[in-house]
Simulated assay, not measured.
Amino acid sequence: MYTYAFFKSPKHPLQLTEGIAGDLAVIERGVLSALVEPDLEFENIQNDDTQLVQAVLTHDRVICDLFWQVTILPLRFGTQFLSYDRLIDHLSENHEKYLEKLNQLEGKAEYRLKLTPIELELPANPETNGSMKGRDYFQAKKQQYQARLDQQDQQQQELQQILSEIEQVYPNTKLKEGADGIDKLYLLIDKREEMTLYQHLNEWQNQYPHWEMGLGEALPPYHFV
C-alpha cells in the first residue's frame, strides 16, 4: 500500500487531489492517520523512466497539498506497506513517537537557504603583462596565488559567521554542504514568522556581501522528521 505521509486524524474532511495513478484515501488508526494510494501498482512505474520521473513530482505535489491543510510527517518517495494490516500495525506501534514529532512540528515549515559564494576579484594575471619576465613574473604569480588563498579564507570565515548568526536566531537548522561550493541550510520555522525571516535575510545579505543568499518557499519538513 503506497503511503505519502502520517498526520493526526483530521477533525474535518481533507481536500484530496489525484495521486500518482489514481485516487487517494485516508486510513485512520485512532489519533493517527496515513494518506495512501491503495490501488497503485508501484512496480510497474519503476520499470518506466518517464513514469518514474512524473511519479516523483506527483509524490511531492501530493505531500505539499496535504502540508497546507494539516501538520504532517512526509514519507520518502516509494514508501510502501505490504498490506492494510501492516500499515495499521505500524501506526499502532509508533503512535507515541509520531504524535510527539507532530506536536514538535505543529505550525512549522521548512525553508531552504542557498548560500552561494560571490566570485572574488583577484589581482591582474601576470600573463597579461607581456613585459614581466623572470623573477618578477614568478613573484607576481606567487602574490596572485596568495591573494586567492587569503580571499577564499576570508570568505569561509564569513560563512561560519553567517551560520553562527542564523543558528542563534533559528536553532533548528540542518546544513548540507554542496560539492559545487553552494551550501544549503534548511531552517525549521513557524510559518507565521516568514516575514521576519525575510527581514533577517535582508540584514544578513547586506552584512555579508561576499555571499548570495537565496531563500526558497515554505515546504513540508522533509529534513526534520
Rank of each mutant, 00 (worst) to 15 (best):
Q160K: 07
M195F: 15
L188E: 02
G178N: 05
N172Y: 09
G178H: 01
A140H: 01
Q160A: 06
K142V: 02
G178A: 01
K174S: 10
E194A: 13
E203N: 04
N202K: 08
I189D: 04
A140C: 03
D150I: 04
P171A: 07
A147I: 00
D183T: 01
L188M: 12
D153M: 05
R192E: 10
E127V: 13
L159F: 03
A179M: 12
I162W: 00
G130E: 14
Q156F: 06
M195P: 06
K191A: 09
Q152E: 12
K141W: 03
E167M: 03
K176F: 14
L197V: 00
Q144Y: 01
E127K: 10
L197E: 02
F138R: 10
V169D: 10
L185H: 01
A179F: 13
L159G: 00
R148K: 14
Y198F: 15
Y186D: 12
T196E: 15
Y186C: 05
D136G: 09
Q161M: 10
G134W: 00
Q157N: 09
D180M: 08
E203M: 03
K174E: 06
T128Q: 11
R192M: 11
A147F: 00
Q146K: 06
L185R: 04
D183W: 07
E167T: 11
T173R: 05
D180V: 06
K133A: 08
E193N: 15
Q146R: 04
Q168A: 11
Q152S: 04
Q168P: 03
D190Y: 08
Q146C: 03
Y170F: 15
S131T: 12
R135A: 03
N129Y: 14
